[in-house]
């Protein structure tokens, strides 16, 4: 702790992130009744694909500062202080802050792409995986060749740790693997393509454009998931055009595999799945 405070001017973003996590953990009252805790998390920004599509895109970032309990917070905090100080010193504070924010968003976008519309996600682990991805990408970039970093024990252990974490995510129901993988890929791509010294070659520029377009497109999808049942249902409830409502009803039935009957004089109201 003393060491951390001594190097506070070198790792301001890491300390700010830790402070934000701790403050929000206190504000969400994790020791209170579970229902109240859930309401607080929802109020402060948990991410569900449905809420994000319902006009609350700030949740794509907000969820990365919340935690689902003290154990969750402590685990992520220990990971933060393991990876972040060295990474922030290496990248610089501005770039590190950018890495944190971008990988939190890419983790959130992956959740919106994969998870069920009502499934909530909280935690900074998407951004933590982004940091690990950044470390791997920096090692891949700076070695004699792409896989030269595997000759060293540190990066090899980190890679093994990532593999184990992602494998666990497939078996443990409480872990959002989409967020982890989204954050990891975001960290690798951002570090490989953007956070690098020197002038960009034409090929690098092409890849930068393509991946930026992909990220923008995923953001568009998370806000307008037009073929997902919850978005169709929402549009169905809001539409006044009878012909359009008929089409939307058919689309909803197609998307959910359920048959609904619309009343004669008003658009159908879908039931939650």
């Amino acid at each position: 702790m003393k060491d951390l405070l001594q190097q506070a001017d070198e790792i301001p973003v890491t300390l700010l992130v830790a402070l934000a996590w701790a403050t929000l953990a206190v504000l969400t009252k994790p020791f209170g009744p579970a229902e109240e805790f859930g309401q607080h998390l929802q109020q402060f920004g948990w991410l569900t694909p449905g809420l994000c599509a319902d006009g609350e895109p700030w949740r794509l970032l907000g969820y990365a500062f919340l935690h689902g309990g003290v154990v969750h917070l402590l685990l992520n905090m220990s990971a933060l202080f393991t990876f972040a100080p060295a990474l922030e010193k290496s990248l610089g504070s501005v770039r590190f802050a950018l890495l944190y924010l971008v990988t939190a968003v890419t983790g959130g976008l992956a959740c919106c792409l994969v998870d069920q519309p009502g499934q909530p996600v909280v935690g900074g682990s998407g951004a933590l995986f982004g940091m690990m991805g950044a470390v791997i990408a920096m090692n891949m970039r700076s070695g004699r060749h792409v896989f030269a970093f595997l000759d060293f024990e540190g990066p090899r252990r980190l890679l093994g740790w990532i593999v184990v974490q992602i494998a666990l995510g497939f078996f443990l129901p409480m872990i959002s693997n989409a967020g982890h993988i989204g954050g990891l890929l975001g960290g690798i791509v951002l570090t490989f393509l953007w956070l690098r010294p020197g002038d960009a070659t034409p090929a690098l520029r092409q890849w930068r454009w393509a991946t930026t377009a992909l990220a923008a497109s995923l953001l568009f999808w998370s806000l307008q998931p037009v073929t997902r049942w919850d978005a169709i249902g929402r549009e169905l409830q809001g539409t006044g055009d009878r012909q359009r409502a008929e089409l939307l009803l058919q689309a909803y039935q197609r998307a959910t595999g359920r048959s609904l009957t619309a009343p004669d004089d008003e658009p159908a109201t879908p039931r939650p799945r």
Binding site: T227, I232, A251, R254
Partner: peptide, 29 residues
């Protein structure tokens, strides 16, 4: 690179199809 551009275009294509025919968009997916 072409695959990345194709993936990037996909949500926009779905949105455009959905504007004219929501059923066709769902069927396309």
């Amino acid at each position: 690179l072409a695959i990345v551009w194709l993936l990037a275009a996909w949500p926009l294509v779905l949105w455009l199809v959905h504007r004219s025919d929501p059923v066709a968009a769902v069927e396309l997916v």
